[in-house]
Amino acid sequence: MSEKVSFGYKEVDVEEKTALVGEVFSNVAAKYDIMNDAMSGGMHRLWKDRFVRRVKPQHGEIILDMAGGTGDIAFRMEARGAQVTVSDINQEMLDVGIERAMERGIDSLVWSRQNAEGLTFSSATFDAYTIAFGIRNVTHIDRALAEAHRVLKHGGRFYCLEFSTTQWPGFKEMYDLYSHRLMPKIGKIIADDEDSYRYLAESIRKFPKMPEFESMIRAAGFARTRVEPILGGAVAIHSGWKI
Score class of each variant (00 low, 15 high):
residue 214 E to W: 09
residue 83 Q to H: 09
residue 95 D to Q: 10
residue 214 E to T: 08
residue 132 A to L: 12
residue 66 M to E: 03
residue 55 V to M: 12
residue 154 H to T: 14
residue 16 E to N: 11
residue 225 T to R: 14
residue 230 I to Y: 04
residue 43 M to I: 14
residue 130 T to Q: 03
residue 94 L to E: 02
residue 117 E to A: 06
residue 186 I to P: 13
residue 208 P to A: 08
residue 176 D to Y: 07
residue 152 L to V: 01
residue 70 T to H: 09
residue 198 R to G: 01
residue 25 F to L: 12
residue 206 K to R: 15
residue 75 F to K: 15
residue 233 G to Y: 07
residue 25 F to A: 11
residue 13 D to W: 09
residue 198 R to Y: 02
residue 127 D to F: 05
residue 164 S to K: 04
residue 46 L to F: 08
residue 228 E to Y: 08
residue 173 E to T: 04
residue 101 A to N: 04
residue 61 E to A: 03
residue 233 G to V: 02
residue 184 P to Y: 07
residue 237 I to E: 07
residue 60 G to D: 05
residue 136 R to A: 01
residue 44 H to T: 02
residue 131 I to K: 10
residue 236 A to W: 06
residue 53 R to W: 00
residue 123 S to D: 15
residue 219 A to D: 15
residue 29 A to P: 11
residue 43 M to T: 12
residue 149 H to C: 11
residue 178 Y to K: 13
residue 123 S to R: 14
residue 89 I to F: 15
residue 239 S to K: 03
residue 141 I to T: 14
residue 127 D to M: 09
residue 193 D to R: 11
residue 152 L to W: 10
residue 117 E to R: 09
residue 78 E to M: 14
residue 229 P to Y: 04
residue 193 D to G: 05
residue 18 T to A: 13
residue 83 Q to Y: 06
residue 42 G to D: 04
residue 179 S to G: 03
residue 32 Y to G: 08
residue 44 H to I: 02
residue 3 E to V: 10
residue 90 N to Q: 08
residue 15 E to V: 03
residue 36 N to W: 13
residue 212 E to W: 01
residue 170 G to K: 09
residue 70 T to W: 11
residue 52 V to G: 00
residue 40 S to R: 11
residue 184 P to L: 11
residue 167 Q to M: 11
residue 192 D to N: 15
residue 159 Y to G: 01
residue 139 T to I: 04
residue 19 A to V: 10
residue 45 R to L: 11
residue 212 E to P: 00
residue 171 F to T: 02
residue 50 R to C: 03
residue 230 I to S: 03
residue 186 I to N: 13
residue 212 E to D: 09
residue 6 S to V: 07
residue 89 I to N: 08
residue 98 I to T: 04
residue 139 T to E: 11
residue 18 T to P: 02
residue 61 E to W: 13
residue 138 V to K: 12
residue 4 K to M: 13
residue 231 L to D: 00
residue 135 I to N: 09
residue 193 D to M: 12
residue 122 S to G: 04
residue 83 Q to K: 15
residue 238 H to W: 12
residue 7 F to W: 06
residue 116 A to W: 04
residue 125 T to C: 07
residue 159 Y to M: 07
residue 239 S to P: 02
residue 178 Y to Q: 11
residue 212 E to G: 00
residue 189 I to M: 14
residue 69 G to H: 10
residue 243 I to V: 04
residue 154 H to K: 15
residue 65 D to R: 06
residue 200 L to I: 15
residue 204 I to F: 04
residue 20 L to H: 08
residue 139 T to M: 08
residue 106 I to N: 12
residue 241 W to P: 00
residue 224 R to C: 00
residue 172 K to M: 03
residue 103 E to F: 02
residue 139 T to K: 13
residue 95 D to I: 00
residue 152 L to F: 06
residue 57 P to K: 07
residue 96 V to P: 01
residue 90 N to Y: 05
residue 122 S to E: 13
residue 232 G to V: 07
residue 119 L to M: 14
residue 113 R to M: 08
residue 187 G to Q: 05
residue 107 D to E: 14
residue 154 H to V: 12
residue 240 G to E: 10
residue 230 I to W: 06
residue 63 I to H: 10
residue 136 R to H: 00
residue 15 E to Q: 13
residue 104 R to Y: 00
residue 230 I to V: 09
residue 216 M to V: 00
residue 179 S to A: 12
residue 54 R to C: 00
residue 42 G to L: 01
residue 164 S to F: 04
residue 63 I to Y: 06
residue 63 I to K: 10
residue 50 R to T: 03
residue 148 A to V: 05
residue 87 S to I: 06
residue 10 K to F: 01
residue 138 V to E: 08
residue 150 R to W: 10
residue 119 L to W: 07
